[in-house]
C-alpha cells in the first residue's frame, strides 16, 4: 500500500492547489483580569472566544522557539504565579489539537480548574504573584506567494514560508476546518491521496518541538516520501 502510494507520489498533481497563507495577530487587552484562581475561573466563563484562542493557540506561535515547559498561558500562570504544580500539569495537558471548537476547549479548561479547586479549596482565593490579564487577538490573514499542485512544490512551500504560516495551517486550522486534522494533512489526503503522509504529519508532536522543528519534521517526511517514490520507480 505504502509502496504503491510512494511510487505515485512524485507524479501526482492536485486538482485544487494548496495556497499557503499566513496570519498576523494584533493583541487586544481585555477588561478581565485575575489575581487568584477563583478570579481566573470567573474570567474564563465570560471572556470572548478570541481570548481563549489567544491564550491557548496563539501563545504557541509567540513562543514557538521553546521546546519544553510552555504549552499555554493558563498552565504557565498556574505554575509560575500561583505555584499550583498539579493544576499547571493538568492545564498543560489540554492539547489544542484535540479540539475543533473554542467552546469545547473553554469547557474543558473550566472543568479542570473546578475539579482542582474542589479538592484544593484553599487555593481558590490565594493571591497570585502576578496578575493574569486576559487578552485576545484580532487575526488578519495574509496571502503568500507560495502555491503547490505537486508534492515537490508543496515541500518547497513548507521550506520557505514563515513560521506564522506553519502555525496557521498546522495548528490553528482545526478551528477553521472543524476537524481533528490540519490544512496540510487535509490537502495531502484529499488532493494527492497520500493518506500515510497525512497521518504522519498529524502525529507530529507540537509540544515537544519548536515550530521550526515541526517544519523540519514535515519537510523530512515529505522528502522521504519523494525519495521512496524515486526508489520505487
Amino acid at each position: 500500500m505504502v509502496a504503491t502510494q510512494s511510487k505515485q507520489s512524485n507524479t501526482l498533481t492536485a486538482k485544487k492547489e494548496f495556497v499557503f497563507n499566513s496570519a498576523a495577530y494584533l493583541l487586544r487587552i481585555g477588561t478581565e483580569r485575575a489575581r487568584s484562581l477563583k478570579e481566573l475561573l470567573e474570567g474564563l466563563r465570560v471572556v470572548p472566544d478570541s481570548s481563549i484562542f489567544q491564550h491557548m493557540f496563539q501563545t504557541l506561535a509567540e513562543h514557538h522557539y521553546i521546546r519544553e515547559g510552555f504549552s499555554n498561558d493558563f498552565a504557565h500562570w498556574a505554575f509560575f504565579s500561583c505555584n499550583e504544580t498539579g493544576l499547571a500539569e493538568r492545564l498543560a495537558g489540554i492539547d489544542v489539537r484535540e479540539y475543533t471548537s473554542i467552546k469545547d476547549m473553554r469547557q474543558q479548561i473550566i472543568l479542570v480548574i473546578e475539579e482542582y479547586l474542589k479538592k484544593n479549596t484553599a487555593s481558590a482565593d490565594r493571591q497570585a504573584l502576578e496578575t493574569f490579564y486576559f487578552c485576545s487577538s484580532d487575526t488578519v490573514v495574509i496571502p503568500t506567494t507560495f502555491k503547490a499542485r505537486s508534492l515537490e512544490e508543496f515541500t518547497e512551500g513548507l521550506r520557505r514560508v514563515s513560521l506564522h504560516s506553519i502555525h496557521y495551517h498546522f495548528i490553528n486550522a482545526r478551528l477553521r476546518i472543524k476537524l481533528n486534522s490540519n490544512d496540510f494533512s487535509q490537502w495531502l489526503e484529499e488532493e494527492l491521496g497520500l493518506n500515510d503522509l497525512a497521518d504522519k504529519f498529524e502525529a507530529i508532536d507540537i509540544y515537544t518541538s519548536t515550530l521550526d522543528g515541526v517544519r523540519r519534521q514535515m519537510v523530512k517526511l515529505a522528502e522521504s516520501e519523494s525519495g521512496n517514490a524515486r526508489k520505487a520507480a
Binding site: L158, R159, R160, V161, S162, L163, I166, L179, N180, S181, S185, D196, D199, K200, E202, A203, I204, D205, T208, S209, T210, D212, G213, R215, R216, Q217, V219, K220, L221
Partner: peptide, 27 residues
C-alpha cells in the same frame, strides 16, 4: 469526517541542526 487515530512518526524531533525557512540560517 473525523481523522483516523494518529500513528507515530519515525522522524527525529531533536535534529534541529539545520534551520529551514525563517529565519534562514540564523538560529
Amino acid at each position: 469526517m473525523p481523522k483516523k487515530p494518529a500513528q507515530n512518526t519515525t522522524t527525529d524531533p531533536t535534529n534541529e541542526s539545520a534551520s529551514l525557512g525563517v529565519p534562514e540560517g540564523k538560529r
